[in-house]
Design a protein around this nucleic acid. Structure first.
Length: 572
RNA sequence: GGGCCUGUAGCUCAAUUGGUUAGAGCAGAGCGCUCAUAACGCUUUGGUUGGGGGUUCGAGUCCCUCCGGGCCUACCA
């Protein structure tokens, strides 16, 4: 048994996430966590909300609420949706937690002691009307290059030229539209990650088994221009972790907070501490996952994230950990994902285009989405959600192949033998062939899950389901029953055991259907099969069961058409 | 502008990292079965691997070039 630490990129607090966000980190992380638990490993699966930063403050203001209250409410909304999708976090924390405040300040203090923090005075645009400093992209104006009137302070969307906010003609606040802007001096802390460039470079170079997507982004940042640049880790905002040096005040930094991307990854650690605190456990309970001098040297740490998060997880966060000089656990493997597109374009929050987590659960149970999203996870390139594809995957894979297999076996048994596993007859060569095939497929399935090859694992699982229908067709118990009822009994006993076997193997992908099936079969043993022959005898002769309701219903053409229209966007 | 990824059957994706005749699922066609959610099984039709050139005994895979799609480019997170 091993110990596996799994973190999913933490979703931003501002609003409900869409299916692309879900499949980019939380859902595959959940699949992996469930699989590792099923294999009897000790798992710590961590997620949280990322609550700081300008967008959270603006969203709260728009909602007319104090930002703390807004975040607390949105945390609950996201927590409910996580539960709805059966995301099996051991802790769904909050980056605004006291634990994260303390740890973030601690890390900053350690980095300062070790010479990795620099104080820099710089000029930034301040909006008098908004009463705040404006991030570059919150300043709009006319592009000096192409004349586009809605160019942002960091880049012109029209001509793609990179800009400095002071380049803009007629600059105004993107928040209020106010032109009452001025340039003020402000002091910030910079993380001197350039000093760690060689160590990070060496570390990344050693990760030869990581996805290309992960390492190529890291290498680009390490080698672009003059190499890895230092990074500002503080902001002039109200909502965030106050800048402190450990427990001590930081002279000159009063009223400032740490930058969201400094405190967000630290929340992985802090959330584990939140878990330990909530469980009434001591310090050692969380530290054994994170401190290599306190047990974490035996931990395998795997992170899941969308490609936009890669630089922070491959560079900034490791720089924070290495720079602390403490034996904190560094990530062992990073699984990164491309984006999921929606029906020929992108998901769009502002245009209401695409399916969002709350809407998805309104129209269909979580398993339907989990299956489609995971079996089409954007691992190698951006992938595409279409309603036609979704409908055919759900109807074919879940309803026809798996659901109908369970249905035909349990109902046939009920009508011929009653609602208990039939006793007569014994397994023969036909069953041995299937068991041999399944032994091979089970090994392949496990190998893909270990390697986090999600689509391949899904394809293998489907093939395992199909094997049941092939067997049933070949064995034809409905015909055999007329001549040799004992033989038919053995076939059905084997098939009922296949159904239990499927419930166990499918749990990481479709936990609800798996639970429903196990319950109907009254199966006490849901352990991962060590031996396929043994597993296919787990339900003994005479074992009573219930015929379950259909595990999955089909999506009709009318529903598909209606949903396609409803989620097309255009603010309708 | 720079960097990276990507283009394979009507659709969604594979192809053991340069190795026989490029494979699956869905959709289409035919046959079979009647236990089951009009479900299942078997057979089968679909490809100049975006175009062109090159390296090699051998290229979907490597190189050059052109065309298309996407992401990143450090103050959104």
């Amino acid at each position: 048994m091993a110990r596996i630490l799994i973190t999913s990129a933490i979703p931003y607090i501002n609003g409900i996430k869409h299916l692309g966000n879900l499949v980019g980190s939380q859902l595959p992380a959940d699949l992996y966590a469930r699989y590792m638990r099923a294999r009897s490993h000790e798992v710590m699966f961590i997620c949280a909300t990322d609550e700081h930063g300008t967008p959270a403050e603006l969203a709260a203001a728009k909602a007319g609420k104090p930002v703390a209250e807004y975040c607390a409410e949105m945390w609950q909304v996201q927590k409910n949706l996580s539960d709805g999708f059966r995301l099996s976090f051991d802790k769904f924390g909050r980056s605004s937690s006291p634990q994260n405040h303390a740890l973030t300040q601690y890390f900053a203090g350690r980095l300062a002691e070790n010479g990795y923090i620099e104080e820099v005075t710089e000029k930034q645009v301040y909006s008098n009307a908004d009463g705040r400093f404006l991030p570059d992209r919150y300043i709009e104006g006319t592009c000096p290059n192409c004349g586009y009137e809605k160019a942002r302070g960091d880049q012109c969307e029209n001509c793609t030229k990179q800009l400095d906010p002071t380049d803009l003609i007629d600059p105004r606040s993107a928040i209020s539209g106010s032109t009452d802007l001025e340039v003020r001096e402000t002091k910030h802390l910079y993380l001197r990650q350039s000093l760690l460039k060689d160590r990070l470079d060496e570390w990344i170079a050693s990760k030869t088994d990581w996805p290309v997507l992960t390492t190529s982004i890291a290498r680009k940042w390490l080698h672009d221009g003059d190499g890895l640049r230092d990074r500002g880790i503080t902001r002039d905002l109200d909502w965030g972790v106050p800048v402190k040096r450990g427990d001590a005040d930081w002279p000159g930094m009063e009223g400032k907070v740490f930058y969201v991307w400094f405190d967000a990854p630290i929340e992985y650690i802090a959330a584990t501490r939140e878990w330990a605190d909530a469980e009434g456990l001591g310090e050692a309970a969380w530290r054994r996952w994170w401190r290599t001098d306190e047990g974490a040297d035996e931990v395998r740490y795997v992170q899941f994230m969308g490609k936009d998060n890669v630089p922070f997880h491959t560079l900034s966060f490791p720089a924070t950990i290495i720079g602390s000089g403490d034996p904190w656990k560094l990530v062992d493997y990073i699984k990164s994902f491309n984006y999921l597109n929606y029906d020929g374009g992108q998901f769009s929050t502002s245009q209401g285009r695409g399916v969002f987590m709350d809407q998805a659960l309104e129209i269909l149970p979580a398993d339907y989405w989990r299956w489609w999203l995971l079996s089409h996870a954007p691992e190698n390139s951006d992938s595409e959600f279409t309603w036609e594809n979704f409908q055919s995957s759900v109807n074919k894979d879940l309803a026809d192949v798996l659901g109908n297999f369970v249905s035909r076996v349990t109902k046939f048994c009920r009508s011929r033998f009653g609602e208990a596993v039939p006793e007569a007859g014994s397994y023969g060569p036909g069953e041995a062939v299937v068991a041999a095939e399944l032994t091979e497929r089970l090994a392949a399935y496990a190998a893909h899950m270990e390697a986090i090859d999600i689509r391949k694992a899904a394809a293998e699982l489907r093939a395992i389901w199909v094997a049941g229908n092939e067997y049933l067709q070949e064995a034809a118990p409905w015909a055999v029953f007329k001549e040799d009822p004992d033989r038919a009994a053995a076939i059905i006993r084997f098939s009922l055991n296949l159904a239990r076997f499927y419930a166990v193997l499918s749990e990481p992908f479709i936990p609800d259907a798996s639970a429903t099936l196990l319950k109907a079969l009254k199966a006490e043993d849901a352990a991962w099969p060590q031996d396929v022959d043994a597993a296919l005898s787990a339900l003994p002769a005479g074992h009573a069961f219930d015929v379950p309701e259909n595990l999955f219903r089909k999506i009709t053409d009318d529903e598909r058409a209606a949903w396609q229209e409803r989620f097309a966007g255009g603010r309708g």
